[in-house]
């Protein structure tokens, strides 16, 4: 018997979409543990997100403090560890975002908890499936520690639906000590497009796009489809596009309904990040590239000619509906 403490990220008074995938996994884990899901909201603005969070779990705990304005693993991990104890949780979870991946192992260490990282499936109370070897295999691991830490791969779980109206309580942050670490700044990539992790459609370009300017035609395709932009490591390393567009073992793991890989060769590193996509379209002028081995539809063509044609054809299709 034990509860599941789900650390959830929020923005502007709402849970982030990424948090909803973890709540689906957390509900499954809670069933196996005979307990309930307790959502933990930490930071400045946590209270404002609690009403939204309460729609997704029977209990929400808010730890609001000005001293926790900027996320730091050093200050957040002790709060998570303290709330695991306070809420009678046997499992602590978060989505494997850049915050979840940074925070949960540190909190696990404070709890002597073993961790299953980036899980794709809940098998039982203590066993979880997770991708290893860049997604070339799935390992089922048993975590035999009194408290278990879990991070959840967003693309492997549906977003949780609302479950009623839970209760909200507050807890004290305790003494906040950043151990000398400070947040300096975030150079944010502002975009009106959906988050790469949540997008239903992703348009990604690779080395063959040659320069950043050439990505404009892919962005036009993306905007036509309401898609997020992605890129291979070769394109981000070359500075053609921002680093946070990178899809792969390093970078984002995505599984949209539709993935366009344009002028991407398909290195193992890239395939690890996108081969869970439902439908994969590869456009490349070289028919021997490995990307065609995972593609549902392959078009051997130059992007210079085929992408503008693709935009025109999709516009025609949309107009005919």
């Amino acid at each position: 018997m034990g509860n599941v403490l789900a650390f959830c990220e929020y923005a502007d008074g709402q849970l982030r979409t990424s948090a909803l995938a973890n709540l689906t996994a957390s509900r499954e884990i809670a069933k196996h543990h005979g307990g309930e899901v307790v959502i933990l909201l930490v930071g400045k603005g946590a209270q404002a997100a609690s009403a939204h969070a309460a729609k997704f779990a029977p209990k929400v705990v808010v730890v609001e403090s000005d001293a926790l304005e900027h996320y730091l693993a050093e200050t957040y991990a002790p709060v998570v560890a303290a709330q695991v104890k306070a809420t009678g949780a046997t499992v602590v979870t978060a989505t494997a975002t850049s915050v979840g991946k940074d925070l949960i192992p540190r909190a696990a260490a404070l709890l002597d908890a073993g961790q299953a990282s980036d899980i794709s499936k809940v098998e039982s109370a203590t066993t979880f499936a997770r991708p290893i070897l860049a997604g070339n295999a799935y390992s089922t691991v048993a975590i035999n520690t009194p408290v278990i830490a879990v991070t959840v791969r967003q693309s492997e779980f549906e977003a949780a639906g609302e479950s009623g109206m839970g209760s909200v309580s507050t807890a004290d942050a305790g003494s906040v000590n950043a151990l000398g670490a400070t947040f300096v700044k975030l150079d944010a990539q502002k975009s009106d497009r959906p988050d790469l992790g949540d997008a239903k459609v992703v348009v990604a370009g690779g080395r063959g796009m040659k320069n950043g300017e050439n990505f404009k035609v892919l962005e036009e395709l993306a905007d036509l489809l309401g898609a997020a932009m992605g890129a291979s490591r070769a394109a981000t390393d070359a500075g053609m596009v921002p680093a946070d567009w990178q899809v792969g073992q390093t970078g984002k793991i995505v599984a949209p309904n539709l993935y366009f890989a344009v002028a991407i060769s398909g290195a193992i590193q890239h395939l690890a990040g996108m081969k869970g996509s439902k439908t994969i379209v590869a456009i490349n002028k070289n028919k021997d590239e490995p990307i065609f081995q995972v593609a549902d539809y392959g078009l051997v063509a130059d992007w210079e000619k085929s992408v503008p044609e693709l935009i025109a054809e999709i516009k025609k299709l949309k107009a005919s509906r």
């Binding site: 693993a73 050093e74 940074d102 949960i104 696990a108």
Partner: peptide, 21 residues
């Protein structure tokens, strides 16, 4: 293993700050 946890756990156990990724 692709687990991405040892550095963070070590920092937590040592009570040291961490800068990941």
């Amino acid at each position: 293993g692709d687990a991405n946890q040892v550095g963070q756990m070590l920092a937590g156990k040592l009570g040291w700050p961490q800068a990941t990724f």
